[in-house]
Write a protein that binds this DNA or RNA. Structure first.
Lengths: 354, 354
DNA sequence: CTGAAAGCGCTAACAT
DNA sequence: ATGTTAGCGCTTTCAG
């Protein structure tokens, strides 16, 4: 690294103390002449304050961390672009990590960020609330984007269980003592509205046996789907993949084969939509003649499919931007969560029930 | 930020000096007992060495920077995933920036990285060699991925020009004095081979009027295209977009309209392929009946198109991984550049000339 | 308004 | 083998 000028160099060259230079550069008070001289010298020396010194002094790194499951999921890429846009305009660095949807990798990455003293983090979480507790406790300012961590598995405390059994309290068992839920601001899409609109649209076309294919983190969408469909609910029509494209394909293909009677499917994300299109084609199901399809996420290629895909668009880029704003503006006090609207974009992948 | 234990805390608690703790944790020499005690205390205190202190001391930040034009370009996302995978397994942080293909933003981001003392950088460059010189001079270890910076515009030195005119040396003018080319390792695909294979394939199908649609950074591919097509060369069949999806669409659409006689097109990247498919459909050109299409980059949705797209696949993820290895292993000495093979994946978007 | 000085947490000489 | 010490570049009291 070519040696760069330090604040000391500037101070000497300007004939002032380092404190003065620091003040001038961070907008503190200084006489106009001093200020001007310092500025001139700094420019002449091409001085750039080192973030290293500042960070150490302030015991924190500026900027923010960004954790997403997978950048090749175009929606996450859009979200990331939003975060980067905001960070760029703020001149702040972004340390990024891809978790592969694996809570363990996620935790490791959080550890890495902690080590870097990155104390602001935007995350599309993969782990559950429990796995996020340490980060919060460590003092990180976290903002969740796109989804929230799942509630931790209810711990079957053997003693309590036994007691409950004994007292025959099963039916009206008190809610198991669970860790208090995380209080973290978030930026998510209106999944409930988005899914409901999609289901209603399909209903309006005459569809009755509608399926949902989800992936990790799509629990809220699945819940919204259950709610929108109402009774009678056919749980077999709700399937999940584990996050990889392969497993998404397997889920879609399995669904089509086991339930040839379904006439429409809602894919909970673009990777699942991709899988659904592929699986349908492989099984010679024609869209929308044999099966109607609505995909969550509007991605460029949705328009390229034949027929073009009808989608529930969520503003990925905006979500990222807003999340970054939230995490930056968090001047200590609590931030409100934000829910962004979705939009049903009707193209050609849905038709009347045959 | 909850106050974390420092090396001093560990030293005191273990009854040793800070240096010993430092040594133990970085694998230096220490007696087995001491080592054990320190390790125990460190674990007990949940001590994590602060990267801040280390970085300042070593005057450099670990990890690496990563600059790409646009993450929603799936190829760049794949490349980024490769970089992240390598960085993750090395436990190193990655500071990412998205340039939007704009040399100016790129320069600003480089400045930001310099300020952070990030001295290792992987970049899909947007600026030309000239705009990259400062980063190199500042001592950054740079590895270019996917493409190389364009040669700087030849400066028309008036004096030299005049002299040349005077001496009638125009025809055999000596190469203009240009800055010495950057000597930076890189990881790129075998564009020459990839394009040649594509063109030959199309030729074999009988196509004679083949077009090329490129974007920023596709100069090498365009050059390879010219070479592969040979004489007579129809320059009108080579068009460029500026990087945005809109401009890519405009370029494709304009090409199809101005040259209805073309029978095949090679798109220099997935965003351009996207545009080509869209434009063709808009103009009622059927693929492959009316026009054959080969796209650079194998992306998941290539298979979803109807017909599925024949592509020149380049190993985006590997490229990223290799680039990260290169930049990490750069133990001071020069690294060799690497060229990765491409593969023509024949699907259904090419047919015989009608 | 300005300067001197004290560290932030860590590593690398240097001494023991 | 281990402790002591001197900073890395910066911000921030605290005096002047």
């Amino acid at each position: 690294m070519a040696k760069r000028a330090t604040i000391k160099d500037v101070a000497e060259a300007a004939g002032v103390g380092v404190a003065t230079v620091s003040r001038v550069l961070s907008g503190g008070s200084a006489s106009p002449q001093t200020r001007e001289r310092v500025l001139a010298v700094a420019a002449q020396l091409d001085y750039r304050p080192s973030a290293l010194g500042r960070n150490l002094r302030q015991r924190r790194t500026g900027g923010m961390g960004l954790l997403v499951p997978d950048l090749t999921d175009t929606f996450h890429a859009q979200l990331a672009e939003g975060v980067l846009a905001c960070a760029r305009s703020a001149g702040e660095p972004v340390v990024i990590g891809s978790t592969g949807g694996d809570p363990e990798q996620e935790s490791e990455l959080i550890g890495m960020l902690l080590e870097q003293s990155v104390d602001r983090l935007i995350a599309v979480p993969s782990g559950d609330e429990e796995s996020w507790a340490p980060a919060i406790r460590a003092g990180m300012t976290v903002v969740f984007a796109d989804r929230l961590p799942a509630a931790p598995p209810v711990e079957e405390d053997p003693a309590v269980s036994a007691l409950n059994d004994l007292l025959l309290l099963d039916g009206a068992a008190p809610p198991p003592a669970r860790a208090k839920p995380l209080d973290v601001p978030s930026v998510v899409a209106d999944d409930r509205g988005g899914i409901r609109t999609a289901v209603r649209y399909l209903r309006g076309l005459g569809h009755r046996r509608i399926a949902f294919i989800g992936g990790p983190g799509h629990d809220r969408r699945a819940a919204a789907f259950r709610e929108a469909v109402g009774e009678p609910l056919d749980e077999e029509l709700i399937v999940f993949g584990t996050g990889s494209r392969d497993s998404a394909y397997a889920a879609a293909s399995g669904l089509f084969q086991s339930r040839p009677d379904l006439t429409a499917v809602v894919a909970g994300g673009n990777v699942l939509g991709e899988a659904a299109v592929l699986a349908a084609r492989e099984l010679d199901l024609r869209v929308p003649r044999d099966v109607s399809l609505i995909m969550y996420d509007d991605v460029p290629w949705a328009e390229l499919c034949s027929p073009p895909l009808t989608v529930v668009a969520q503003p990925g880029r905006d979500m990222g931007y807003r999340a970054a704003e939230l995490v930056l503006r968090s001047g200590g006090r609590r931030q409100r969560s934000v829910v962004l609207p979705t939009e049903l974009i009707v193209r050609g992948s849905c038709g009347p029930r045959r």
